[in-house]
Amino acid sequence: MSVSFIERNKEKFEALQKVIDKNKSEPGPLMPVLQEAQEIFGYLPIEVQDFIAEELDIPITDVYGVATFYSQFSLKPKGKYRIGVCLGTACYVKGAQKVLDELSKVLNIDVGATTEDGTFTLEATRCLGACGLAPVIMINDDVYGRLEPDDIPEIIAKYK
């Protein structure tokens, strides 16, 4: 599996190599390299962290320590559909937390997690700038507003 992951993502690894070469001699290269790696791959699987560790000549535990310390990094791939629940003030006041709880219940995952089948990732986001529609969620590029928890099962069903 691992070999094929590296083969399947040859170009991405080449891009990562460039990022590493650029940062290698700078002080504190790990953070920027991880950020760009996350951009390139969308998440930081063991193959990517191992690659970074080898190239920067540091233990993989250092890479993993940083990757798990900051919530901006993800160790698992994101789902096909990324559901963002706006927790900005307006949405929050209008019951966004209840919507989020309902999503978590319907999908059977915690915030930040991805469903077993890799279809949905549930995330809490900052203000999406659609306060007039509060509470708002986004599923990839689709926006849903003025939501009640009861609306959720139907919306999710559309993507299944």
């Binding site: 233990p59 993989i60 535990t61 250092d62 993993y64 320590g65 798990t68 310390f69």
Partner: peptide, 10 residues
Amino acid sequence: GIGVIGATER
């Protein structure tokens, strides 16, 4: 010089 155990999370 091995480093297979480290601190994770926070």
